[in-house]
Write a protein that binds this DNA or RNA. Structure first.
Length: 433
RNA sequence: GGAGAGUUGGCAGAGUGGUAAUGCAUCGGACUCGAAAUCCGACGAACCCAUGUUGAAUGGGCGCGCAGGUUCGAAUCCUGUACUCUCCUCCA
């Protein structure tokens, strides 16, 4: 949520900034109109209420003194009616105002590449080297299905499209991946959290998914509950409505959770493989910081995500997203994209964002500074990393000509010493004869 | 799922229709070499509006879990609802 007082003061600056994200200038004008209307009505109703309070006091005094007050009470009845009519208008205007305000995206950082599409993203760095295959690398879904560790067909039968069964060493590989990630983040000072996977609408509002992006999520039928599309929601809402003790800042948390997304509007895209699922695991990082610390915190969070890919020896690059491609709440976003040799392109595996006070305003999350005053915290979130896509990248990058997959060195201890997934060791129940 | 009890300021805790006691904590001051104790004073979340300021406030609104209702007036009465606790039921 943006600060209406700032918008009032410099509407043109906001129009210009938000235009780079696809917000029409009229949307700002609407907000300002509603704000003016709201304040006008408030002044009227508050004047009346002040009068009512004063007269009510007189009535109270009269009653206590056993004096008649019927004539004043009759007058006040009329005033009461006027107030409630006015209050109805106020409520209506405020509701509309709030709705429009909560649909305005965050202001992009001044150095964000300006573009309404994803074209124009800046490549910040390229890391690791891309393997030269002396055979035609297979897609990860073929690698996985050939080994028997991924079963999309039966998932389709049991659940539907965009679901998968991992089996045997495939399931273990995913588990190794997220255990490794969590351990790495804990070394960096993040506290591990196991949050709820279902949250209420207030939480979805707090992190910015509601009201604008209701389509993307699974809603529990008839209830005020949503399956989390990312652990960002329960992690960031942890302190919703609270004042964080200053000495606790910065707070750094990490969590492995499944993420549920309806993928409405993505029909036909990435229909095969692990890239775009209705349910996937992700290790998320969330930080709460003081305003002056958030940009450094974004750097270190990005480094924490990169650390995982470096140690897994997966080639990747880091890009800075355009104004039009960033998530609604972000002021700056850096994506990590890992190399998928069969697709011959980079695919997103992490998104690290600084939301400044945008979410904190929605959630009313503050801290009391040394000046004794309350300040909004800054919130950051980043994937560290999406597990399914990481597994996909391992299957593609580490595949061998005979169809086996070499386990990255750092994961071998997590695989109980297994260094390679082969048809023979992949899924024990298939090899019993 | 059923029954009951509860939810008031940072904390504790009064208040059953007349507009939120009190204590602790906090902040300022006095006393003191200093501190504690004591005394005096201030302060009751956040938010919103107006005038003003840009680290100055002042006035008003709102405010007793939340949302409605009754009333001239609601912490107080009514309805719904969330959460907490206890018991029953169920369950991993």
């Amino acid at each position: 949520m943006l600060d209406i007082k700032k918008i009032r003061r410099q509407p043109d600056w906001f129009k210009e900034k938000l235009a780079t994200r696809g917000t029409k200038p009229e949307e700002i004008d609407e907000v300002l109109d509603l704000d003016a209307k709201r304040r006008d009505l408030l002044q009227q109703t508050e004047t009346m209420k002040a009068k009512r309070n004063a007269v009510s006091k007189q009535i109270g005094d009269a009653k206590r003194a056993n004096k008649p007050a019927d004539d004043i009470i009759a007058q006040m009845r009329d005033l009461g009616d006027q107030i409630s009519k006015l209050d109805e208008q106020v409520e209506k205007v405020e509701e509309e105002f709030h709705d429009k305000m909560s649909r305005l995206p965050n202001v992009p950082h001044k150095d964000d590449p300006v573009s309404l599409t994803e074209e124009g993203a800046i490549e910040l760095r390229k890391v690791g080297h891309i393997r030269d295959f002396d055979f035609e690398p297979k897609h990860h879904w073929d690698v996985g299905e050939n080994l028997g560790i991924l079963d999309f067909d039966r998932a389709r039968k049991v659940s539907g499209a965009r679901f998968v069964y991992y089996l045997g060493l495939g399931a273990q590989l995913e588990r190794a991946v997220y255990n490794f990630m969590l351990d790495e983040h804990m070394k960096e000072g993040y506290t591990e959290v196991l949050p709820p996977y279902i949250v209420n609408a207030a939480s979805m509002f707090g992190t910015g998914q509601f009201p604008k992006f209701k389509d993307g999520v699974y809603q529990v039928n008839g209830e005020d509950m949503t399956l989390i599309p990312t652990a960002e929601v329960p992690l960031t809402n942890y302190y919703r409505g609270e004042v964080i003790p200053e000495e606790e800042l910065p707070v750094k948390v990490t969590a492995l959770t499944p993420c549920f997304r309806s993928e409405a509007g993505a029909a036909g895209r990435d229909t095969r493989g692990l890239i775009r699922m209705h349910q996937f695991n992700k290790v998320e990082m969330v930080k709460y910081t003081k305003p002056e610390d958030s940009w450094k915190a974004l750097d270190s969070m990005t480094a924490n995500a990169e650390n995982i890919l470096k140690k897994l020896e997966i080639p990747y690059h880091v890009i800075r997203l355009t104004t039009g491609d960033m998530s609604f709440t972000a002021s700056e976003t850096r994506d990590l994209e890992l190399w998928m040799p069969a697709q011959h392109k980079y695919r997103e595996v992490s998104s690290c964002s600084n939301c400044l006070d945008f979410q904190a305003r929605r959630m009313h999350t503050q801290y009391r500074g040394k000046d004794g005053k309350l300040h909004y915290v800054h919130t950051l979130n980043g994937s560290g990393l999406a597990c399914g896509r990481t597994v996909a990248a391992i299957l593609e990058n580490n595949q061998n000509e005979d169809g086996s997959v070499t386990i990255p060195k750092v994961l071998v201890p997590y695989m109980h010493g297994v260094t390679k997934i082969t048809k023979e060791n992949a899924v024990p129940f298939r090899n019993k004869h």
